[in-house]
Design a protein around this nucleic acid. Sequence first.
RNA 1: GGCCCCAUCGUCUAGUGGUUAGGACACGGCUCUUUCAAGGCCGCGGCACGGGUUCGAGUCCCGUUGGGGCCGCCA
Length: 477
Amino acid sequence: MTQASGSPRVRFAPSPTGSLHVGGARTALYNLLFARHEKGTFLLRIEDTDVERSREELSAQILSAMEWLGLEYDEGPFYQSKRQELYRAAAEKLLTDGKAYRAFETPEELDVDRKKAEAAGRAYRYSGAGRAISPEESARRARAGERHVVRLKMPAETIVVQDLIRGRVEFPPEALDDFVLVRSDGHPLYHFCVCVDDTEMRITHVIRGDDHLANTPKHVALFQALGAPVPEFAHLGMILGTDRKKLSKRHGAAAVEEWRDAGILPETLFNFLALLGWAPGEDREILSREEMEREFTLDRVGASPSVFDPEKLLWMNAQYIARMPAEELLARATAFAPGGVPEKSAALRAVELHRTRARTTVEMARALSAYARDPEDYDPDGMKKQVKADTPAHLERLLARLEEQEDWSAAVLEAALRQTAESLGVSAGRLIHPVRLALTGVTVGAPLFDVVALLGKETASRRLRRFLEAIRPHTPA
RNA sequence: GGCCCCAUCGUCUAGUGGUUAGGACACGGCUCUUUCAAGGCCGCGGCACGGGUUCGAGUCCCGUUGGGGCCGCCA
């Protein structure tokens, strides 16, 4: 039995164990894209059943990362920790229906069995001893306060999962055992909560990571025991680090927040993640949110895992930076500018000058700050290479000439410098490179005359003078 | 170990039995140029292997190898 037609309902169900990982973000994103494409509903559910590990601050972090990325949900967030009554009732019903039973072994006893199986080289499975206890005795022992868990009676038949991405997958019964639904302290466990919630929330499609594929037969059996429709499944390939291992903190920058702080635009990360496992065809890579929603379908999602490549992310971010309106780009970069930014109109011009040179908003911010603050030091290699014995004299001449200029425009400045170079009998480069060093502290950057014009006469002159002071003692008189 | 999934350039991918196997990132070269970028042009580079099926396999089937996942009173 599967869900009948109608508007699809999907969900993203992270456990609040820290920050939002890019793998989780991609899963959420595919759910969202699927929901939008199908005109369905996307909900968020926080799986905080593990009371020892979950904390509210941790889910707040996930919520804010989702908001930043543009992962907006239609319903929720729902917290499993607040739905305990639902699980208790469902467990009770499974028990009365004979679909589940109480088991009275202690964790220690189970551990012994597990060790034994391991030593014998067999796969461990629960003995099923609890199945033999009559309902009457079971209830009596429970009433007497004997500690017990609740286990599902797994059917002794092959469970078939029809996966939208992987096709038909079969799980033989000997691989499955009667897993625990409710702990002896009364807390419901993950698999159980998932199925109860998916049923109650009328989820039609479960789109999640590949790591859950092996859990799916448990879920199918549980849905059936619950008398609930079995949703469709779509299992996504994992996202791997460059070493082809599942992406984790170990790889660095596995969290959405880290990319945000590194100056990656949310639009970029959204686009990039969407393409990790899905392609719209026709070799298109830079896609608007609207295009993605319009074209996203599960049948174009690949089954194989994919490596997260930061280099390509950076390239894509540069593409977004190149296209973004200056005003908006300035606003985004300003948040990262430690040394402040110049006044608005100058800042806007600076943004245009540097947009092809910045791959992140952090880099853009650094470029902007350079206009607002005089350089603190000069690149040593540049000094060595560009500052010659006659450089101070050249720069004195140039400075005098520049200060005469009324019209402080790039074209006029360039003409002035080239004429100065000519009268000095040196190439323009002999002046250009030291001047860049004087004004910015480094040897690379935007076209020099634009930089000089943007800085303005006062700032440019001041920086040139300071540079002259800095180089004089080091050059022979 | 058992069960399950995956396999096209280094990376992301297009490809659904007949293609010179296409694009993008990265890399190399050229170009533009005051530097660095960006851009443009060119290049390097791939169907993991072995069997089938077929007139014909990157595409279908089986196996091998490699990688990954799951086997908790974690999620």
